[in-house]
Write a protein that binds this DNA or RNA. Structure first.
Length: 429
RNA sequence: GUGGGCGUAGCUCAGCUGGUAGAGCUCCGGAUUGUGAUUCCGGCGGUCGUGGGUUCGAGCCCCAUCGUCCACCCCA
């Protein structure tokens, strides 16, 4: 029978990698906490229509990357390819946007049917932040400041660049779309294949094309800048002033248009050159039309999402991560099976008396030699040993596995616990 | 969806112009009958990704297929 293995693009996370991920997540959550953002959790499955309408059915995500299927009642469901649409749905469904502002975050797996490569997987984890009800550019600056604090908390600030652009108001964006179309239609036959396909569906994406022949044609194309109205211009200028006040460096990149239909005004990406081709670690922007588009009252929104796999890869590439002090303080072993019950009870007693102490009890079999080998391999500082002599005397032998000679002494258990409390406080080492 | 690299022990990898599958690490046992990490000795472990073809003979050559990695596309 053929072996069953993990689904393509859906990677397992092994203990060492998981420790690094937890380290990253702890730091990110610390920052969110200091900013007073609140967590929400959406289901992994949503109605397919939510993404078709929210993300935009001309986008690559909706066109060819969604995991969609009919459930047993015939309803079309989709594993979420991103978090913003679901977050808006959650807010609307529970009245979170009625006469109030929100600063929210979520974290969890997203699914896109793409060819896997470095830093890109079919199931990947995003941490997303979404804010609602703030029309002005101050919140744009707050979010970029939040990002900046994320990078500082992780120690990756030097590896990341903020690239910034504005798409303008929905009206300005629509106006520019028309102008660009008018320019490109007569040249359609000279565009690269992908760009021809995008011409009617999503012309702004053509700006992003890497095909040289297309880039050449774009040199004389109307610029987005030229279509900006006064309000759009002022929003962007104010944001830039705020970023200067926060001392956050950035570069304006007019080619950033982003692949989701809902963006307006501010769009941005934090990129790195340290991860190969998948250089975008974090991306987002303002989506003032999205809530309305999904059936709510017009409500300004802005948000971004980070790929945790990419962030973790970046931290790893920078040599960052948790201090490796092992995951155990104490390894309890009976010298033979006759005292297994006492060993289990001792481990239990220690965990109760010293809640922070990390204790593991030998649960395998084998001779004394094998038991000590396990104790050593466990990484624990101390071995607590129970043999005939100790059990009959009500003591335990404590061996320092990390000392040069492995010093060992016999102590009464009560003494040991009191001593540890005295040395480390009630919380243990 | 397209292109290229790579699939040999749990892990990292050797394997010559085609001639009976190897090393290191890990693990287990012994030297040391209540003591690890060092040292020495021994042992377990493989349908060479899978299927077909060529050949007296295939880990090696050919075809197909699957997986994986990287890149394109796009995105986090």
């Amino acid at each position: 029978m053929a072996k069953i293995q993990s689904i393509r693009g859906m990677p397992d996370v092994l203990p060492e990698a998981s420790a690094l991920r937890l380290w990253v997540e702890d730091r990110l959550r610390g920052v969110l906490d200091r900013y007073g953002y609140q967590q929400v959790r959406m289901p992994l499955l949503e109605a397919t229509a939510l993404f078709a309408r929210g993300v935009g059915d001309g986008t690559d995500i909706v066109e060819k990357e969604m995991y969609s299927f009919d459930d047993r009642s015939g309803e079309s469901l989709t594993l979420r390819p991103e978090g913003t649409a679901g977050c808006v749905r959650l807010c609307e469904e529970h009245g979170l946007l009625y006469n109030q502002t929100q600063r929210l975050w979520y974290q969890g797996p997203m699914f896109r049917y793409e060819r896997p490569q470095k830093g890109r997987y079919r199931q990947f984890e995003q941490l997303g932040v979404e804010c609602f009800g703030f029309p002005g550019p101050a919140i744009d600056a707050e979010l970029l400041g939040l990002c900046s604090d994320f990078w500082a908390a992780l120690g990756v600030s030097d590896a990341l660049t903020l690239e910034l652009n504005t798409l303008g108001s929905p009206e300005a964006r629509a106006h520019y779309r028309d102008a660009l179309l008018a320019y490109l239609r007569p040249l359609a036959s000279q565009l690269d294949e992908d760009s021809q396909r995008r011409l009617e569906r999503n012309p702004l994406r053509i700006l992003d094309s890497k095909a040289p022949e297309t880039q050449a044609l774009l040199e004389d194309a109307p610029t987005l800048e030229g279509s900006l109205d006064a309000v759009s211009r002022e929003h962007f200028d104010a944001l830039r002033r705020y970023l200067d006040a926060l001392a956050i460096p950035y570069v304006v990149n007019p080619r950033i248009v982003r692949g989701l239909d809902y963006y307006t005004h501010t769009v941005f990406e934090w990129t790195t050159t340290a991860l190969g081709a998948q250089g975008t670690v974090c991306g987002g922007g303002r989506y003032d039309g999205l809530v309305e588009r999904l059936g709510g009252r017009p409500t300004p929104g802005i948000g971004f999402a980070m790929g945790l796999e990419r962030l973790t890869l970046l931290a790893e590439a920078q040599g960052l991560g948790p201090v490796l002090d092992g995951n155990l303080d104490v390894y309890v072993l009976a010298l033979d099976e006759a005292h297994t019950a006492q060993a289990l009870a001792l481990g239990h007693q220690l965990r109760q008396a010293l809640p922070r102490l990390r204790v593991q009890v030998h649960c395998s079999e084998g001779k004394a030699k094998a038991r000590f080998k396990k104790a050593d391999a466990s990484g624990a500082r101390y071995a607590l040993i129970l043999g005939d002599a100790e059990v009959s005397q009500g003591t335990v032998a404590m061996k320092d596995l990390r000392a040069r000679e492995g010093e060992q002494r016999t102590v009464a258990l009560a003494t040991l616990i009191d001593q540890w409390r005295a040395d480390y406080g009630a919380e243990g080492p």
